[in-house]
């Protein structure tokens, strides 16, 4: 990549490097648009991950449910949201998890911007 790298704190732009790395993971998450596929995943997570060709770090990140790990493995926020939905997690659950806060702390942080 000849793009100049510019760091933005706590932020991983989903660029070509990430898109390459995360392809299988994101493809699996894209499949979760279908309720049948969500059910198939829940029924046998390991088999489903293998079917989509996830790498070992991607599988580990899925098992861990840790969004930061999923991002490090190439996950894209728009597709990961579908994975989070399987567990009934909303965006504030996810935000709390990533920032190491309780959900109430995270909500308070958001409100403080008002």
């Amino acid at each position: 990549m000849t793009q100049p790298t510019r760091q933005i704190e706590g932020t991983t732009p989903f660029d070509g490097d990430m898109a390459r790395k995360g392809y299988a993971l994101n493809k699996m998450c894209f499949s979760f648009n279908s309720a049948d596929n969500r059910a198939a995943f829940k029924n046998d997570e390991e088999a489903y991950m293998t079917q989509y060709g996830l790498t070992e770090p991607q599988k580990a990140a899925i098992r861990s449910r840790q969004v930061l790990d999923l991002i490090a493995a190439g996950g894209n926020a728009y597709y990961l949201a579908k994975f989070a939905g399987i567990f009934g997690l909303d965006m504030q659950d996810i935000g709390a998890q990533q920032t190491g806060m309780t959900k109430d702390e995270f909500k308070a942080k958001l409100k403080a911007y008002a």
Partner: peptide, 20 residues
């Protein structure tokens, strides 16, 4: 591929990218 993609979008070509 990505070198070309980044250059093209940087020059206002509105391409589709195909990882498959």
């Amino acid at each position: 591929s990505w070198q070309i993609i980044n250059t093209l979008v940087g020059q206002d070509f509105d391409i589709v990218t195909c990882q498959d």
